[in-house]
Design a protein around this nucleic acid. Structure first.
Lengths: 223, 223
DNA sequence: TTTTGTGAACTAGTTCACAGCT
DNA sequence: AGCTGTGAACTAGTTCACAAAA
């Protein structure tokens, strides 16, 4: 039996779970490179500091991918995970904001790695439009976003614009039919229910680290 | 009564909580700019799509900052939050890896905003060492990390190096006495217990969005 | 009256422990 | 024997609801 129940799921799956699925995929890729053909949830957990029961639960939710007494076939499980994560289709990404960060992200090799294609950068600064990033990603006018989303089948937008423009640009992105946004601007975006936003909030991350520094090490000065 | 119990806490506080504290601080800054002097947990929750009880609980853990029947004094609460988050000390950041991403982060205005100072970039490429970023952050040799951490009082390291170098560089960072790392490389770092790592995993974020696209919208093709 | 601070109730997420398959 | 898949137990996190303060 191949894929017993897969899909029509997706409703209840928490973001913590999907994040872990992505992590599992990465672990399997590493194992495969090391030449492993099968792996048990136990050894996977030990090598990558995860919990075996959780791995099994996460995977079992999408199908019976394991073989009792054996474990999981690395190659097969990788394929299943890629399918579950929707990485078997081609995923094109548009980056809005061709500033330092936007261009750096456009040229970031990590993105391409797992099969994401950076299709285009978008900006409204005349000097930038028509140019391209170091690695050759073209920069288009933000006003033409809708057109390029259609033409290049862009399904994910990365927001790397100044904070002040964030919501306005998000509205444009949503209007262009994008349903998934990776948001590098600080703060929350207001979007319709059917649009998923994932925030990468550098200020929050740094301040959280600051809290740890302030409280983690005891007895620094007063009292 | 000013700061009734503050600090000696920090042990039990979850990362979700510290993240929220940072968000509250940002909300208050916005409110203050709008001229608000006081704010109730209720109105704070409504305006920024948070939960009023949770705001109160989060804050009450660190002290009795509110006034019954009134709410919180915006300016006071901001000050308290900055103190709780450890933002009242000067926080210097070193970015390891002066590639596209590292340099973009070095010049990212969002970092400086809330009082973080990007003290230096570090790289081991001869062509880069001795140069500086567009906004003037100097690039030093990674081998001199320890020296600069001491000299410039760097307390937070941002890892923006290739995945293959991540663990090796993390070890160097830890050896230099850094206790807080913001990690842009994919995968987990092995560090001692007293070092805090916060990961920004772009691949995981994108793949999580991909999952949503694959499952969020119903009835796309087969079955 | 308004709004905090907080125990109690609830919900979500994780881990345990074992029956059952190979 | 070895390992999965999973109900049950547990832990963490959130929200409710209300007594007490201003």
């Amino acid at each position: 039996m191949r894929a017993p129940k897969s899909r029509q799921h997706g409703e209840n799956v928490s973001e913590l779970t999907t994040n872990r699925l992505s992590v599992y995929l990465r672990c399997l890729t590493e194992l495969e490179a090391q030449g492993a053909r099968t792996v048990s949830s136990q050894s996977l957990a030990e090598q990558f500091h995860l919990n075996a029961a959780q791995i099994r639960k996460d995977l079992a939710y999408f199908g019976e991918f394991g073989v009792r007494g054996v474990g999981y076939y690395v190659r097969d499980l990788k394929r299943h995970l890629r399918q579950i994560l929707g990485l078997d289709r081609s995923l094109r990404v548009g980056i809005i904001g061709a500033g330092n960060l936007g261009q750096a992200l456009a040229d970031y090799p990590g993105f391409r790695q797992e099969g994401f294609e950076i299709a285009a950068l978008f900006d409204n600064q005349v000097g930038k439009v028509g140019q391209q990033s170091r690695s050759g990603v073209p920069i288009y006018e933000v006003n033409d976003l809708r057109k390029h989303v259609k033409r290049d089948q862009i399904s994910i937008a990365v927001l790397a614009v100044p904070a002040s423009a964030a919501q306005r640009v998000a509205d444009v992105v949503v209007a262009a039919g994008i349903k998934a946004i990776l948001n590098f601007t600080p703060g929350t975006l207001q979007v319709p229910e059917d649009v998923k936003v994932k925030g990468v909030d550098l200020t929050v991350s740094l301040e959280s680290l600051s809290f740890f520094l302030a409280h983690g090490e005891f007895a620094e000065d007063d009292e």
